[in-house]
Design a protein around this nucleic acid. Structure first.
Lengths: 219, 219, 219, 219
DNA sequence: TATGAATGAGTGTTCATTCAT
DNA sequence: TATGAATGAACACTCATTCAT
């Protein structure tokens, strides 16, 4: 999932030989970056503030990451990887072998939303970075191509559901956009209202997409 | 609709006595700010770049606006005001006197989406600003309260539709979030794919929310 | 008293043909400059703030004065001229024809101190300007030569007193410095403690210099 | 003696763990600030000029001091601390155990004046800063309260002398003002006339205050 | 590995000044 | 006479980055 095409031209260190301590520091700094981005926004997440939060000197960040860009992109990679691992478990646990399209879509929704509910701050950072991180010329790093890749599985599920007659004949691209937008919106909702009933919210969303996708008289 | 709550403590000039030329410059600078924010993102929209785009010296911006915050917030005010004017016209033109909840909601969707299709860059700037503009302590200027105000009319329409039996018994808050998130997502879609068939996209969205909201056997 | 040697190279307008209105504006701006310097200090006295205080546009100041330097130097000229006029009246009123050195010195002290008590803000501005106003290369405009001129009459009086045996054989230069420093210090005292008993203060100062100057067994 | 009342709200670094090199840089920058303030005045002492004088880049100053205010206030602290250390030595060396009020006062005068004669530039900077340094709202940082603290020991000595019958019944507050004003005036005198006979000047001042304070027939 | 020190570009802002109207 | 508009330099400050130790 992670695009290794060094967006900024900066080469990443060879991931192979990293000592234990280096791995730990990187993980710690990524964690701190998440917190700072979440609290102060992408623009407020300077290296000094991240280092300060980690209780280390500013140089440490530059030592472990080739540049700010690598740290930021590593945050994205990290959060995404953890999310995918979580989703894979859900997928395996919850889905029967003969799962229908709606089973797939509702599982996709639930696994995404429960993961967000469990780590709202990490995903807030992710959203901030995706919307703001740019290269030297001002081009978004996580642009259209990246979003398309994120939407692909949803579109695939939807197409399957339509072919099976389970879903009505909507435009799968539009539906995928709606699904992702609603999922990502959950992040803000959770942070803005910490006392939100997440489970109820999730079921409402699932229910909404049930009505939105279901074939007229199906299921 | 415009929140006069001077987020930064900076006082805005008395809007009353503004010369023609001042109005023109302000409008030009707001326009340039929109373009720069749209192209380079919130973080890339420095006063120098905005001034450069306008072909004037940096001091001009400071002359016409009390501070960067005023310029940025004026962009929000401006885009919002134009959007509301547009929506008001649509409302008046399209809606019969005895409009039902679905008439209202679909008009809300269509007027918002067609306005976005007409000025995608302005609304991209708006989205960037809303998500990133913060005060000196790092608090979002356009935070939860602001979003809530934006969602209020949608929730009101939904409640009306439920009371009239036109809509099913979904959670109006969740639905309002979905509506706004999908609408705002349209902004990115348009800019990322300039050749998009906007009309078709809009009808798909309207159709989706028709299915999502409709009472089981209604209409 | 005013040194016309254009300290900054800037030429002053010919003082001759000034319309009534121009005179009034200049006087008003000088007054406002005094207030602003007094309240915000020399460094805080920008043309904008002075103009704002006067309720006119910034350009007005530049119109009536060749540059900021002229305005500032005109403040000095003005306050000094008013002070001298006051002193001259006191001199004429209070002094007998056969006045002794102590009569002269005490009158000098009293006329200076009462003038300060009457216009503390103007003299606070004066002190601020004299200590801070500099030319383009950073040289003080009101430097040693200027202070020397201010001290000349005191030294002259002291020398007279010594020749007459009225004063003891102190160093007139040192005494003149002390006199001027104490007088100028009164300015701060008045502004810092508005409820100060000025008359008592003045008599204490006069008394102090009586003891400081008097010949051992004289008077 | 150092007022820790963070005048600007800016926090000073924990003075404890400062590396040797940091201490050296700070000292150097403080020295350069003194020179620049002395030569160009408070208003001419920009960070760039101070850095330039030190032969370092502008950022170095910001690196070692939280803000300009800290640097400036550190100059005050530094000069004052050195002066107090000097005065304490003088006090210890010169004063007998049974010192009278005049011994105290004359030692106060001499130690202050000789310190000034030894470091006129540092004290010129001090005077400039005290008269001009202000907070964001234009209020003087070293205002009335600060001056009062500086005058306290003089007043105390004077009161002692009066109670002992050594001094005449002058107003101690007025006398303290005179003492401080004359002392500070020495700074300008030295810089304006580098060839001044400092020792003679000092003795003249001491002599003057002897006459000014002495009880009618005492000593 | 980690730090402290330094750099230089870039930020928003203020300012005195100029000039057409 | 007076204004509003614009300029460009200077200001304090922040930042990502580099590097010797």
């Amino acid at each position: 999932m992670r695009s290794d095409s060094g967006s900024t031209g900066q080469r990443r260190r060879p991931e192979a030989h990293r000592s234990f301590i280096e791995q730990a520091r990187r993980a710690q700094l990524i964690e701190c970056a998440i917190e700072v981005v979440c609290e102060l926004g992408y623009g407020g997440a300077s290296l000094s503030r991240i280092a300060e939060r980690a209780g280390v000197s500013k140089g440490v960040v530059s030592y472990h990451f080739v540049g700010k860009a690598e740290l930021i992109e590593e945050v994205v990679h990290d959060v995404l990887a953890r999310g995918e691992a979580y989703a894979a478990r859900e997928w395996f646990d919850r889905l029967p072998d003969d799962a229908g399209a709606w089973d797939l879509l509702s599982t996709y929704l639930r696994s995404n939303l429960t993961y967000i509910a469990a780590h709202p701050r990490a995903l807030q950072a992710l959203v901030q970075i995706i919307g703001n991180h740019r290269d030297g010329e001002g081009r978004r790093i996580f642009g259209p191509a990246w979003s398309a890749k994120l939407r692909a599985p949803i579109e695939s599920i939807c197409r399957g559901g339509q072919e099976a007659g389970e879903f009505r004949g909507f435009d799968v691209h539009v539906m995928a956009i709606a699904v992702r937008r609603v999922i990502d919106g959950f992040v803000f909702e959770l942070l803005d209202h910490p006392d939100l009933d997440a489970a109820a919210f999730i079921e409402e969303v699932v229910d909404m997409f049930d009505h939105a996708t279901r074939a007229e008289r199906a299921r």
